[in-house]
Design a protein around this nucleic acid. Structure first.
Lengths: 340, 340
DNA sequence: CCTTGACCCGAAAACGATTTCGGAGTATAA
DNA sequence: TTATACTCCGAAATCGTTTTCGGGTCAAGG
C-alpha cells in the first residue's frame, strides 16, 4: 500500500540514490530523468516518509508547545486558542507542524520536557505562561535547546521572548479609573509565581502610588484566573467597609466573575461599580455590560513567537531577540462606574 | 551533548543490542545487567530518540488533527479548545502527542492529508466538522488509514465516529419555544454542506412540522457561524413583517450576534424576543441575558474520540464504533420571550 | 591516441534505535 | 564423558530516507 522511494526507483529503473537526488533538486541528475522521476512520483502519489527523513536530517519539522494549565478544561483560557492558531498558521507557512501536549506545573513537568528535548521529539519549543523562577526556561537553556517564550521570567537569564507589557496595561487602566474619580480601587490578583500576574499587579501598584492612594491589603484579593475565583474574590472585596468603587482584575475571566458577584449583591456594574479586566477575550466584548479591558494581539503574538523560533532553527540569528508589546486599553461599559 | 544508546553501551561495556533489550524488558538479559543499564540510563538522563524508534517501529505515537476553519482566528469556535484539551489529555494518558495543523476546506486540503497519510506523519487522524460529502473521509477510507470523526457524513460510508444528535437538540429547543406559545419562529442556519448544520436544521423542521407550523422561507436565514453573521441574519429576520417572536440559531456565536442585532433595534431579548443557541460555550452562560442553548459535552467528546482512535491503533476492534450522544437543553434567560 | 573534464549515475554508509538469530558458556541429565 | 538444555549476550539486518564518494561515458583538446 505505502509507496516508498524504492518503488519509485524500481519503476524508473534507477537507483534510490538517483531518485532521491532527482526529487531534491540535486545538480548531478539530468533534466530528463528528473522529469521522469517527478512524473512517476506524481503518478504513484509518493510522499517521502517523514520519520525516515527526520532520522537522516536530524530535524522533525515540528515545533512543540506544552500547555501548562492545571484544569482539564482549557476554555478557562480562551486566548490559548488564538495563540495556537497563530502558531499553527505560521508553522504551516514554513511546512512545520505543531506538537501539542499538556502538563500541569509540578514535578512531572521536568520529565515531560526531558522526553521532548532528549528524545528530540521536536526541533524547538514555545514556552507559555512563564513563571518568576521558571525551571522550564532554566532547563532548556541548560540543554541548549532552541526555544522562545511568551513572557519574561525573573531569574536574570537571557533568552528570546515576546511579552506584553502588563505593567503598562494595568497602569493605564488604573489611571483611567482614577481619572474617573475613583479612590478606593480593589485588585484581583493572579496566583503567585505567574510572571504576567506579577507585572500586572505592579502596574496597579505604580498607578496607585503615583496618585498618592493607599493600597489597602484588604482591597487586594487573589484568584486562580477562573470565573468562579473572580466571583469569590469580588465577594471578599465587597465585604470591606467601605467597599471599593472600582475593581481591576488580572484577567477577563475573573473580571466576569467579579461582575457576577456584584450583580448577586444587587450592584449594577457600570453604574454602582466599575470593573476592568485584561486580555480582551471575545467574551469581554459581548458580556453585559461589556467589559472594559486591556487588549493584547494574541493571534499575532502566536505568529511572532513561531516566526522567531523558526528563524533560530534555520540558524539565522534574531535581529530582535526580546520583544515587549504595549497593550491597549479598550473602554467599554463596565468601567462606567459612578464616582462615589 | 545528546546521549544515545551507543553511549550507554560504551559506558556499560555492553553491546547496544543488550542495552536496548535491557531497557525494553526483554527476557534474555540478566536481572543484574538490566539494573546496571537502567542505572546508567538514569544517570546519563537517557531518552531514546523518538524518530529513530519511530522508523523502526513504524509508529509515531502521535495522533493528528487538522483544523478546517477558514478564518485565521479560531476563537470563533471556542469549543475547539475544549475538544483539543480532551484529545490531548487522553493522548497524553497513553504516551501519545497531538499533532495540530490547519487547512481550510478546499483543493489544498487533499494534498495536506496526503502529506500526513502517505508521509506517515501520524498514526491516526481525528477528523472534525464533517461535511455531507466529505472528501477527507472518503480519502482516508480509500487509503485504509486509521481515523475517527467528530460528526457523521451523508455518503453512505461506514466508519467510526462520535456525534451529537443535533436534530434532537434543536428539536427539543424548538418544542420548548413552541410550548411557550411561540408560533413564528426563525432559524439561523449554518453554511451549507456542514453536516452538523444540516442535522440541526432538520430538528427545527421536524419540530415545526409536528406542531403544524409553516416554515416560511422568509424566516430562515443563513450565517457563517460567526457572531457578525448572526447579527446580519437576525437583521434579515427582523425585517420580516410580522417578525418572528423567537429565533433558533445554529450555534451560540450566531445566537449572540442575533441578540446584538435585536438589541440594536431596541428589542429586549428574553422579554420581547426569545433566542436560543447551540453548543453551550462559556460565553453562553455569561452573556446578558444569559443564553438558552443546547449543551454538548465537548471535552468528553475529545476524550472519547481519542480513546476510540487509540484503541483501533492498538489493533483492538471497537465494541461500539459509532456513538450518537444526546445533547441537553439548557434553559437560561434569553428564551424568556413573551408569547406574542 | 591519450588526457582531461563535464556530466550522470549508483554503491554504500550514514541516521539511532529495535529485533532476529546464532553462539558461547554453564548447568543438568544420560 | 557426552549430549542437552538453558541463560545471556552480541553481530548484523532492518526501518526509509539522504548524502558522500567514486566510477563510467562521452566529447573536446592536446
Amino acid at each position: 500500500m505505502a509507496v516508498g522511494i524504492k518503488d519509485l526507483a524500481r519503476e524508473a529503473g534507477l537507483s534510490v540514490a538517483t531518485v532521491s537526488k532527482a526529487l531534491n533538486e540535486y545538480a548531478d541528475v539530468s533534466e530528463e530523468t528528473r522529469q521522469r522521476v517527478r512524473e512517476i512520483a506524481r503518478l504513484l502519489n509518493y510522499q517521502p516518509n517523514v520519520t525516515a527523513r527526520g532520522l537522516q536530517s536530524r530535524r522533525t519539522n515540528m515545533v512543540g508547545l506544552v500547555i501548562p494549565t492545571m484544569e482539564p478544561h482549557l476554555s478557562d483560557d480562551p486566548y490559548f486558542l488564538d495563540l495556537l492558531a497563530g502558531i499553527a498558521d505560521e508553522a504551516a507557512e514554513h511546512e512545520f507542524a505543531l506538537l501539542l501536549t499538556r502538563c500541569a506545573p509540578g514535578p512531572k513537568e521536568r520529565t515531560c520536557y526531558q522526553k521532548i528535548v532528549r528524545g528530540r521529539r521536536v526541533d524547538g519549543l514555545i514556552v507559555v505562561r512563564t513563571r518568576s523562577q521558571d525551571q522550564r526556561v532554566a532547563y532548556l537553556l541548560e540543554e541548549g535547546f532552541p526555544f522562545v517564550t511568551f513572557g519574561r521570567t525573573d531569574q536574570g537569564l537571557d533568552f528570546p521572548f515576546v511579552d506584553v507589557d502588563g505593567t503598562q496595561g494595568v497602569y493605564d487602566a488604573t489611571r483611567y479609573l482614577i481619572g474617573l474619580g475613583h479612590r478606593r480601587i480593589g485588585f484581583i490578583a493572579a496566583p503567585e509565581g505567574l510572571m504576567f500576574g506579577f507585572h500586572r499587579q505592579e502596574g496597579f501598584r505604580k498607578a496607585m502610588e503615583e496618585a498618592g492612594l493607599a493600597m489597602e491589603p484588604g482591597l487586594l484579593a487573589r484568584g486562580d484566573l477562573t470565573l468562579q475565583s473572580g466571583d469569590v474574590a469580588m465577594g471578599q472585596l465587597l465585604d470591606r467597609d467601605p467597599p471599593p468603587t472600582a475593581v481591576v482584575a488580572c484577567n477577563d475571566l475573573m473580571a466576569l466573575g467579579a461582575m457576577r458577584a456584584a450583580r448577586k449583591r444587587g450592584l449594577w456594574v457600570g453604574r454602582d461599580l466599575a470593573v476592568v479586566g485584561f486580555d480582551d477575550t471575545h467574551v469581554a466584548a459581548h458580556s453585559r455590560p461589556s467589559l472594559t479591558t486591556v487588549s493584547q494581539p494574541i493571534y499575532d503574538i502566536g505568529i511572532l513567537l513561531c516566526r522567531m523560533l523558526l528563524q533560530t532553527l534555520q540558524g539565522k540569528p534574531l535581529e530582535v531577540r526580546q520583544i515587549l508589546l504595549r497593550p491597549a486599553l479598550v473602554i467599554r461599559e463596565s468601567s462606567g462606574g459612578t464616582i462615589s
